[in-house]
Design a protein around this nucleic acid. Structure first.
Lengths: 340, 340
DNA sequence: ATGAAAGCGCTAACAC
DNA sequence: GTGTTAGCGCTTTCAT
């Protein structure tokens, strides 16, 4: 035992002890602990409460879960909580879940299919009441989930997924807004940094970039496909800087990547936004504290988290795809304001 | 049901179904599922495995937990997983826990005593096998934990805590190294940005700053006490810039704060490190991608996470305080290398 | 090598 | 308003 030896093992105080101490039956204890389903006389209730206090009784969640078939836990699988976007998202989800009395079993897949699967399996066997999954795969193999019949919602998802509820942001619309903003600043050579790994199919942000360019009859700028990390963005930035026809503006598909791009730009002695303008995606707090501060397409993380949990727990919810709009937050990196 | 209606509720396949299908007793199923404690004839085992596969049987963790008195879950309470340091730490802890077959119940206290307490209570009632707590308080009220007799280790802790195992980093030594490095660069007016809220007592980093200054017979520079956030660092930076005798160097007690300080410095048109040098604390990935890259005192997060989990799960572990050394990683913000 | 059965702590239907 | 009790799915002792 790491601490006091006073209490040898687990908390040995059970409902039965409380019942004995209060001079009632175990059922009554149950009724007062759960405030129902039967009413209890005030005097009795007081005695039970007192017994609970004195004995330091704490209900055993495992027993309750076994009986009820509900653990009041939700499972969450994300690629990496070290990524600010997922950190924020998981935080918001935790809050939303707590609000409804659910605890969160949090797991990182490290963007790995094998780990993701392992975690899903593990969460299922732990009898979570629902599963929130930000999958690495565009077409996640969810047989086990279907078979287990556990409510599931797919997170951070642009495309609908057959048979599953899912939630995401309008990547294309956001990207179009970003690129059009850059075009509005007079740029004609606009590069793109987009993510890899997340989904094999084309990222909606790439679509948006392309669409905006097409619509303005502008040529495709250089494009880099790198992981959604600081380091990924950095290497993309280095290559973009060295590229034959260096873009005068870059749309980057996440704040983390953008911060990496910024570093590459700085190291190349390029001024932002004067030499190269940047607009990124996510709108995380980080984007406000980079230098220069990033103009970014904000995802409504809290709204999405809440919707995810609500959908998950709503027995009436359909297996629908819900898409949220983004919002552009203008700061310095696009060239709207002077940097200094 | 969010998805297929084929399986009405929870997974209804129980050990009994498997036993019937395989033509054995439930005990045997148990033996093969757990590879023990009794041996099973190979042929029988194969039949059971087949039955499990066909029926899609998944053991019910709640029942197991009830029987065994162990949930194979660990509870973790941190101030905020949105803070890169805690994000990294919790990720490392998750890995260490998974390694040993434990899942992680992750909760954010939002640096709030009330929430922290609520989460601890909740985790205890969920029968976690151990509790990892990065408390907001310097002297956390842990009666409930003691009473529950649940192994606990305190994280991110500089001072020992009576009766509890705890883990932390040598804040003072790290701070001394940082400040001495700055002194080595010839600075004589060295400011400090330190955190609030975490612990009422003096932060070891403040001690270290003071000690290094004393030892070099240097006067105390200006000092700001702000939250461990980007925004906290930013406001400290603003005040430092405006301060009567502006420091030529600043030691900042976390990377997040340092990034905020950097922003304030940039906005004031001050060059880093030429006008103001900065050394920060944590050594997170973020510190490498700021502009300029931060010289920072790195905490050995992975080693700490592993030690924490190991200590937690080791029944022989004493209630000791383990302190880890830090390591200075030199980048641009201190003035060692030219910025560009 | 296998099986029968007790019981982990709890909930709630049913009886009083 | 309160008590009795069956059983949730699992592990494991004790028998065979």
């Amino acid at each position: 035992m790491t601490l006091t030896a006073a209490h040898p093992g687990r908390n040995p105080v059970t409902r039965k002890d409380v019942a004995r101490y209060a001079g009632v039956s175990t059922a009554v204890v149950s009724y007062v602990v759960n405030s129902g389903p039967k009413k209890v006389a005030p005097a009795t209730e007081a005695r039970v409460l007192e017994a609970i206090r004195v004995l330091g009784y704490r209900p055993n969640a495992a027993a309750r879960a076994l009986k009820l078939g509900s653990t009041e836990m939700l499972g969450l699988v994300i690629p990496d909580n070290t990524n600010t976007f997922f950190a924020e998202l998981s935080h918001a989800i935790e809050d939303a879940a707590n609000e409804l009395g659910y605890a969160l079993l949090l797991t990182n897949s490290n963007s790995t299919v094998a780990k993701e699967r392992k975690h899903v399996r593990n969460l299922l066997s732990r009898q979570v009441d629902g599963l929130l999954l930000a999958s690495v795969e565009s077409d996640p193999h969810l047989e086990q989930v279907v078979e287990a019949g556990i409510p599931t919602v797919l997170l951070n998802r642009y495309e609908p997924a057959e048979g599953f509820a899912s939630i995401g942001v309008d990547l294309t619309q956001g990207a179009v807004a970003a690129v059009e903003h850059l075009i509005g600043h007079g740029h004609t050579n606009i590069g793109l940094v987009v993510g890899t790994g997340s989904q094999e199919s084309m990222d909606g942000r790439e679509d948006g970039w392309l669409m905006a360019l097409k619509k303005a009859h502008l040529p495709e700028g250089p494009m880099m496909r790198v992981p959604f990390t600081l380091q990924g963005g950095y290497s993309a930035g280095i290559r973009l800087v060295a590229s034959h026809q260096r873009p005068t503006a870059i749309f980057v598909s996440s704040d983390m990547q953008a911060i990496g791009v910024l570093r590459a730009l700085h190291e190349a002695d390029l001024r932002v936004p004067e030499d190269v303008a940047v607009v990124s995606f996510d709108g995380s707090p980080d984007s406000e504290y980079s230098w220069p501060a990033l103009t970014s397409i904000r995802q409504p993380i809290h709204a999405m988290a809440e919707a995810a949990v609500r959908t998950l727990l709503d027995p009436m919810a359909a297996a629908e795809h819900t898409i949220f709009p983004t919002e552009m937050v203008i700061r310095q990196s696009c060239g709207c304001a002077s940097v200094r």
